[in-house]
């Protein structure tokens, strides 16, 4: 069996288990390459349909192309999109770009807080029992130790020192009330695998990942004040695969352009323990 086929089957199995066992279920879509691959896998798993709502946490500092691409895909593929935003913090200017918070605090306020609120439901919508995310084990240390089904308590906390066992395709799918589970179908995918799959399946991705002629592109997408471009002439997913495999990026960490990681001591443990994705 080809490696990508193996990864695809395993991820689809996990997505279908989540859909069968966890209700209500949503999926976090950051518009980046990983969660767009995840969205592609959801459409495969359900034979062209997206039977769960997608959640986008909009910090308002996303690069404009990302939002245009988001709205276009939502229309073309016809899925329900829930946009979460921490409006209070934004109106009070409690952010890093406004100079009132450091980067880690800003991530926590605009992403984690808003994610928690969205997952908790509102007048018209019950709380989510689970949410599917596109994180990968090779991104950073705390994600390298994640489970496919990773429980969060009623306060969204991740008990990293007491994770549930999972083996033989059996996961933690039983939960006490008010907790929820994060489902991670892409844990075994590497960054190269993601690009190989995008090339193989011809998955539409946002143009920011490709060199538009000025010799620069984004390797990882986030908010514009904390995400830096890299020097690269890659114009297609195939170029990126070559660049990652043998080229100058082969030994540079993917999230090297994400400033909040540095501020969390070289990883995301502190942020993620409190509920960050």
């Amino acid at each position: 069996m080809k490696h990508l086929d193996e990864l695809e089957s395993k991820s689809i199995f996990i997505i279908r288990e989540a859909y069968a066992c966890i209700k209500p279920l949503g999926m976090l879509w950051s518009i980046g390459k990983d969660s767009t691959v995840l969205l592609w896998l959801v459409r495969k798993a359900f034979f062209g349909h997206v039977p769960i709502p997608l959640i986008h946490i909009d910090t308002s500092f996303k690069i404009p192309e990302m939002i245009a691409y988001r709205d276009r895909l939502a229309q073309e593929w016809g899925f329900e999109l829930i946009v979460g935003q921490n409006k209070r913090a934004l109106s009070e200017k409690q952010t890093f770009p406004h100079g009132n918070l450091n980067r880690v605090k800003c991530c926590q306020t605009l992403k984690t807080e808003s994610l928690k609120e969205t997952l908790a439901g509102d007048d018209g919508r019950p709380a989510f029992g689970g949410v599917i995310l596109g994180i990968r084990a090779d991104e950073e240390g705390s994600r390298s130790k994640e489970r496919y089904f990773s429980p969060r308590n009623e306060k969204n906390k991740w008990d990293i020192y007491n994770q549930p066992p999972e083996f033989w395709n059996q996961f933690k799918t039983e939960f006490p009330p008010h907790s929820h589970v994060r489902i991670h179908p892409l844990l075994d995918w590497s960054e190269i695998n993601v690009w190989e799959y995008i090339a193989q399946e011809k998955i539409p991705t946002v143009s920011l990942y490709y060199d538009q002629g000025d010799g620069q592109r984004y390797r990882s997408l986030g908010c514009h004040p904390c995400t830096m471009q890299i020097k690269s002439k890659s114009k297609t997913p195939e170029d990126i695969v070559d660049e990652l495999r043998e080229g100058p990026l082969a030994r540079v960490a993917e999230r090297a352009g994400r400033a909040q990681d540095m501020d969390d001591g070289g990883g995301l443990e502190a942020l993620r323990q409190k509920g960050y994705m």
Partner: peptide, 28 residues
């Protein structure tokens, strides 16, 4: 390099399994 959790480094032990991506000429 592998014991990424802060508590693992502090205590000098491995608490949870990590996935480490690595390749040789033969395969990943």
């Amino acid at each position: 390099i592998i014991d990424a959790f802060k508590d693992e480094q502090k205590k000098g032990i491995t608490i949870d399994t990590a996935r480490v991506f690595f390749k040789t000429i033969k395969r990943p």
